[in-house]
Design a protein around this nucleic acid. Sequence first.
DNA 1: CTCCCTTTGAAGTAC
DNA 2: GTACTTCAAAGGGAG
Length: 269
Amino acid sequence: MYKETVYSAFNLLMHYPPPSGAGQHPQPQPPLHKANQPPHGVPQLSLYEHFNSPHPTPAPADISQKQVHRPLQTPDLSGFYSLTSGSMGQLPHTVSWFTHPSLMLGSGVPGHPAAIPHPAIVPPSGKQELQPFDRNLKTQAESKAEKEAKKPTIKKPLNAFMLYMKEMRAKVIAECTLKESAAINQILGRRWHALSREEQAKYYELARKERQLHMQLYPGWSARDNYGKKKRRSREKHQESTTETNWPRELKDGHGQESLSMSSSSSPA
DNA sequence: CTCCCTTTGAAGTAC
DNA sequence: GTACTTCAAAGGGAG
């Protein structure tokens, strides 16, 4: 089944050969995501400084936690993405959902009571909390522990590729009628490599602004907060796959690019 | 219901 | 400093 869906995308993929097809980017240059890194020590975070300045209002993270009991609403971002999906010829003034104006005002910014829950903040299970009525039945210790466990998770900001995926996914699905994300992502990965440096640069810039705003909204947040909390992927399996080739990703991309048939056969029937 | 798959990049941990 | 690991999104598939 998986094989079939993957093969159904074959034609699509033929237009976006893997990077191993040496010469997709005739001009060998340093990885864009590295070249795109802003120099250290460059002060760019005026807003960040503003948030970090001593003020009586609670920290953004605290605000976000107070929003947990609300029905979680992911704002409709289709507008923004439709804005950018057609032509990325110019950078939008707003950056994805992190920098969407309404979100900037509403999510986590102190002093905005009508705050919209930030899409990066989700309850761990994605479910609503217990009603206060139910919680009264529990002991303080239990409820405290539960509260701790149900703390909203502040998600990582999306990187350039993730932003690209988010924007292009629907397009690819429409083109190839695939729905399985694993297959879609393979296509998107190849399309990503097929992008020009200029096109990629737009997404790196978007991602940079995402990180910047994320920092502003959640000054104390660290990727460490979510580290190791998501899945307990079988380390043996992962090591098996890495030791199989034992190559760095760059080399694998260049020489050991897994074929579609390989990836399809990797999933158990 | 929960995890896996699959991708790239950022950021974490381990040595 | 380098190598390795985890998590961001997504949704069908599998157990």
